[in-house]
Amino acid sequence: MATEPQKSDAGDEGREHHPRLELDEAIHQPVRLSIMSILAQSKKVDFAFLRDYLELGDSNLSRHLTGLESIGYIVIDKVFEGKRPRTWVSLSPKGREAFNNHVRLLRQIVEHPIDNLKY
């Protein structure tokens, strides 16, 4: 899974950047990373389940979800199942790509720690 560090395409051509500099700050925070990890393995996840699993309040989880939704990483779908309102959360294709890239970079950092010395 590990690949060579990415080459920058902005200005400093040919210069390689350490993978840590390319990590997605929007999803690296533990709560958001947990949300993204669960969503990455799922078609859709119930809001209440995420809230209970992450031990967050409704408003706190909503804040994280709104943040991820605003950058296009997740989709929030409010529906009625019978008379019961339910909020489903799912990962968008953009979010899935960002998450996969984030995992790839994390693995790169773990598998090639010696590369730290080059940067």
Partner: peptide, 25 residues
């Protein structure tokens, strides 16, 4: 963002744990 290999390994562990939760539920 400054992430050392130990932190990266912890993040990967968090991802694995979260993914197993999906199977369980």
């Amino acid at each position: 963002m400054d992430v050392d290999p130990k932190e990266a390994a912890e993040s990967l562990k968090l991802i694995e744990q979260a993914q197993q939760v999906v199977s369980r539920h």
